[in-house]
């Protein structure tokens, strides 16, 4: 019998089901956050919807025990794999005191959790690329075989820090994986107004690193690419640039209305290429998933989302004067 794609990649049925469940969990958490936002309960959402395959495929290819991740605001899927819990993500959405990312100081999507090696991030885009090089440099100086995995959007590849960080990592052959989640928009500005190269991974040549463009709606394709990049990084072959091409299913954020710059048709097309639906189809076709199991998974995910929401809604805010804490070491 012919091996299925995931088996050829060395992934068990259990692992791909796990990936599917995590993708679904990210999607359902995100959808809940939009509802909460529209109900006036949380101030802001920035979505992972449409990016789940790339995020979860990539994160599965990393070593959760020793690698560092420097996610950008859409990467709920990545941080879920690296150990941030649904409750914690909801605490962040509600800006509650126990939000592990920032104690309610930052907007949601500004991830950071030291115990899981999720490196704290900010709002100005692309500052995390040099940080990834620095993390990798630290690991290299200490003789640790950790990889620094950093992500960003397509528009953000135009920032100077993308160039400075990529070049530094390449010159010093640092174990860095730069993954672009190319949803072909930066808020309203389309990719053709952002860069003139065909694929963003074409830029890898200019840095002297390995680069590849893959279908970001296919978790197995992304898994394969990131796994190869991680192997290269651990073998001392330096950084890689992985471009994942995918679709942003929602507006840029809860403060954006994409109808002013995308046609309904286009939005419907993006929805039709939903990575979760296509992965579900793959799992059905390969006999890994059936209706009963799918229902079980969905029920479990919805229960988790409900519990997390309830938990975070009841959790306390930080005290007003907590705003004064942690400027310097105490």
């Amino acid at each position: 019998m012919n091996k299925s794609r995931h088996e050829k990649l060395g992934l068990s049925d259990k692992q791909v089901l796990d990936m599917y469940e995590t993708m679904l969990l990210a999607r359902k958490l995100d959808e809940r956050m939009w509802l909460l936002n529209r109900a006036g309960k949380i101030p802001f959402v920035i979505s992972c919807q449409g990016h789940e395959a790339a995020q979860i495929g990539a994160a599965y290819a990393l070593d959760k025990e020793r690698d560092y991740i420097l996610p950008y605001y859409r990467d709920m899927g990545v941080v879920l794999v690296f150990g941030m819990t649904p409750e914690e993500l909801m605490l962040s959405a509600y800006a509650k005191a126990d939000d592990p990312n920032s104690g309610g100081r930052q907007m949601p999507g500004h991830f950071g959790q030291r115990k899981n090696r999720i490196v704290t991030g900010s709002s100005p885009v692309s500052t995390q690329i040099p940080h990834a090089a620095g993390i990798a440099l630290g690991a290299k100086l200490e003789g640790k075989n950790s990889v620094a995995f950093v992500t960003l959007g397509d528009g953000s590849t135009n920032q100077g820090d993308f160039h400075e960080g990529a070049n530094f990592a390449a010159v010093h052959k640092l174990p860095v994986i730069i993954m672009v989640e190319n949803n072909k928009y930066a808020i309203s500005t389309p990719a053709e107004k952002q860069f003139a190269c065909k694929n963003l991974s074409d830029r890898a040549v200019g840095y002297g690193m390995w680069g590849v463009t893959v279908d970001g709606t296919d978790p197995l394709a992304v898994y394969e690419a990131v796994r190869q990049a991680a192997m290269r990084a651990r073998d001392g072959e330096g950084p890689s640039l992985v471009e994942t091409v995918l679709h942003r299913i929602t507006a840029h954020s809860s403060d954006d209305d994409d109808r002013s710059y995308r046609t309904r048709d286009e939005i419907e097309q993006a929805r039709a290429m939903d990575p979760i639906a296509s992965f579900r189809k793959y799992l059905f076709e390969n006999g890994v998933l059936d209706e009963r199991k799918d229902q079980e998974i969905t029920d479990r995910v919805m229960k988790t989302v409900n519990n997390a929401t309830e938990y975070a809604e009841k959790a306390p805010y930080a005290k007003p004067e907590d705003a004064l804490k942690h400027v310097y070491y105490e």
Binding site: H131, G134, L137, G138, E164, G165
Partner: peptide
């Protein structure tokens, strides 16, 4: 600065 910051966080 940025690489130094990353290394410091490490």
């Amino acid at each position: 600065a940025g690489v130094g910051i990353g290394a410091a966080m490490y």
